[in-house]
Design a protein around this nucleic acid. Structure first.
Lengths: 217, 217
DNA sequence: GACAACCGACCGACCAGTCGGTTTGTGCGT
DNA sequence: ACGCACAAACCGACTGGTCGGTCGGTTGTC
């Protein structure tokens, strides 16, 4: 009946949309489950329950638990990096960009304890695979920071330091602050944000942390 | 937790010694296996093989895999903290003590990649239990640093900063540097040590890092 | 009738921990 | 010196519960 030629367009726009929507639904649920339990303790069946979808259905969309986890991580990291970059763009000097990125990340993590946990901790249980993913993600953050520091350096805003290392130091500091908050009931990252900013700016030799209204426009 | 059956029974000195010696042998082997594989991938049977001891024998000395892992962690952390404290004691000003502790840790970790990995990463797979342990251990390091910074502060050697936070920043920086080395073929912590020291000292507002880097091996 | 999407009972690899048993060391009575 | 008793130390085959992943089948849609 139908001409032999009409199945080279197998997926209509709407079905593609449907598809990514379902994927999104799964990712959302998976994020919650992984955040609550960590990779190993998280059960695929529970993700199914939260999605009102069977295990088979899940496996139709994602080839393995591991892939699903990585997809969740990527999605999260993308959101955060974009947020940081946007904040950086709004600032009007490289150094302030770096500060803004820092603040953006700190407040985002503070607001979502579970996400912080997921992003920073929960993956290590998977062994090497995750560790590579983690450094990939951290590298993206490090780049946002070090690029701005580089500019600040050539602008003479900061002293002549190893900006890659400085970026790493900043990241490490944030990481540790968050972890301490997560597991030892330390203060919220947001609470320590201003002290932290002071320390980190000092590390790149800005001795006088302007009350930041300095070049506000 | 506690060793099996430590009644007040007449355990002769030699048998006690024998006992702790066996424990030590197990800890050594376990350290290697955990370091190579992480907690989850590590098989109790493999520890047995490395010890030339059966699983039953192992379980005679340690009540569970988890306890064994924690014992390994404690042993390692003790060694490192002691090393740091000793290095700090040899220095002759609080600030230099903090520097020395930093150097000691960096060089110890650089020298033993697998141990670094074990201490910093490999445990997360266990969930909450480990995370508590981790913060316990990190707190010990943080204390060594923050106490010295406190003294330095009241000596007027550094500016008036939040020393607890500064200690956390230092730890975080070290942590991140090490992780980056471990998983991204970044430079050795020892290689970056002097740059790192400069940054961290600057963070506590010492603009002029004393050029006196005597290694504490 | 073709195919994407979804179902869910089932499989089977995996491995920490157990347990009945054997060996080794120690003390004691004779 | 010798055997006897008893426990510490050690053995290793086995169990039992847990899940990731599969697959033959059903539904909905074009």
């Amino acid at each position: 009946m139908s001409a032999p030629l009409d199945y080279f367009k197998p997926l209509s726009d709407s079905s593609t949309r449907q598809r990514t929507q379902t994927r999104e639904r799964i990712l959302e649920a998976a994020e919650a489950v992984f955040a609550d339990n960590g990779y190993h303790e998280a059960l695929v069946d529970e993700i199914g329950k939260k999605t009102s979808m069977s295990k088979g259905g899940l496996y139709f969309h994602f080839p393995s638990k591991e892939d699903l986890f990585f997809a969740v991580m990527d999605r999260l990291a993308n959101k955060l990096v974009k947020r940081a970059e946007k904040a950086a763009d709004r600032a009007n000097s490289p150094l302030e960009s770096a500060e803004a990125a820092l603040d953006a990340v700190l407040s985002a993590l503070s607001a979502q304890r579970r996400l912080a946990r997921l992003l920073i901790t929960q993956g290590y249980s998977m062994g090497n695979a995750f560790e590579c993913k983690r450094s990939e993600i951290f590298d993206r953050f490090a780049n946002v920071i070090s690029q701005n520091l580089d500019e600040a350096k050539s602008d003479g805003q900061i002293s002549d330091i190893n900006t890659d290392l400085a970026a790493r130091v900043w990241l490490g500091a944030v990481n540790e602050t968050v972890v301490h908050w997560l597991f030892s009931d330390g203060p919220t990252p947001k609470e320590t944000a201003s002290d932290l900013r002071r320390l980190l700016l000092a590390s790149v030799q800005v001795s006088n942390p302007s009350i930041k209204s300095k070049d506000a426009v």
